[in-house]
């Protein structure tokens, strides 16, 4: 790791002030950023630690409206009983990110702001039609996730939380890379009164996306059998030494089936 100057922010306003004029990175749980700095893939001059800002932590469930603070860890999301009662798909997703030690540190805000093309949360946010809240504005998930590691966040803008309406039914299933354990393809399906949304992570060559084909089939009938014979085009899907675009296209349908089965 290259030398870096650490700052502990007391508030979000303090954090943006500390970052001003520097080649700084915001540090939340650090489960992606610190490994990236260790391998020198990231080399910020300054780190602004958001991990001690109390305002960024916590989960609120009021009726069907869910608000999760950006600094809430995966472990806190996974174990929140109220959230589990209205959206068990999301607590289940959080409980399968990384491993228990990573879940104690990694945060939902960090994951969303990083927008790794194989991260789990972006698929959930897109399928749940969530709103990403920053210190400046509110952004619909569909407009927030822009591409590989790219978001709508501007200079000085920090994700402070996410909010969404709990769906009637939802499920998430991923096919893990056997070594890295990241999703080689993960599908989050959600059924609400506005229809069915299905978002895919780990497969798109430009990050998370919605699958029209899966959504069309599930809109007719929200059952795994409705996906029988459905084909997803392999154009714009990732191909690497782990899986070809065709293989991933098939995985989208298989994971969607399992996600729907899980949604019940």
């Amino acid at each position: 790791m290259y030398a870096v100057t650490y700052h502990r922010a007391a508030s979000v306003a303090d954090a943006t002030k500390l970052a001003k004029g520097k080649d700084a990175k915001y540090l939340s749980g650090g489960m992606t950023l610190i490994p990236a700095m260790k391998t020198r893939l990231a080399a910020p001059s300054d780190l602004i630690d958001l991990g001690h800002i109390a305002d960024l932590k916590g989960i609120k469930v009021s009726g069907k409206t869910v608000t999760i603070g950006a600094g809430t860890t995966h472990s806190e999301v996974a174990n929140n009983a109220k959230l589990k009662s209205v959206c068990p798909a999301l607590t289940d997703l959080a409980g399968h990110i990384g491993d228990p030690h990573v879940r104690h540190k990694g945060t939902i805000g960090g994951s969303i702001a990083n927008n790794d093309p194989a991260a789990d949360y972006p698929a959930a946010m897109l399928a749940l039609d969530a709103t990403i809240v920053t210190n400046k504005r509110e952004i619909a998930a569909a407009k927030f996730f822009k591409g590989l590691f790219e978001t709508a966040l501007k200079e000085g803008e920090i994700v402070t939380g996410v909010t969404f309406t709990a769906p009637e039914k939802a499920g998430y299933e991923k096919f893990r890379n056997p070594a890295s354990r990241y999703a080689m393809t993960g599908v989050f399906v959600a059924k609400s009164k506005d229809g069915v949304r299905a978002a895919v992570t780990g497969a798109g060559d430009n990050g998370v996306f919605r699958s029209k084909e899966v959504e069309a089939a599930l809109s007719k009938s929200f059952a795994a059998s409705a996906l029988e014979g459905v084909k997803v085009p392999s154009k714009n899907l990732m191909g690497d030494l782990h899986a070809t675009p065709d293989y991933r296209a098939n995985l989208v349908v298989v994971m969607a089936k399992r996600a729907v089965a899980k949604a019940g």
Binding site: Y6, G30, M31, I34, P35, L47, H101, V102, H104, K105
Partner: peptide, 13 residues
């Protein structure tokens, strides 16, 4: 009180 990976956390953090 929580298990974490100490190779992925700064001492100052």
């Amino acid at each position: 009180g929580k298990a974490v990976k100490s190779c992925t956390m700064l001492a100052v953090q």
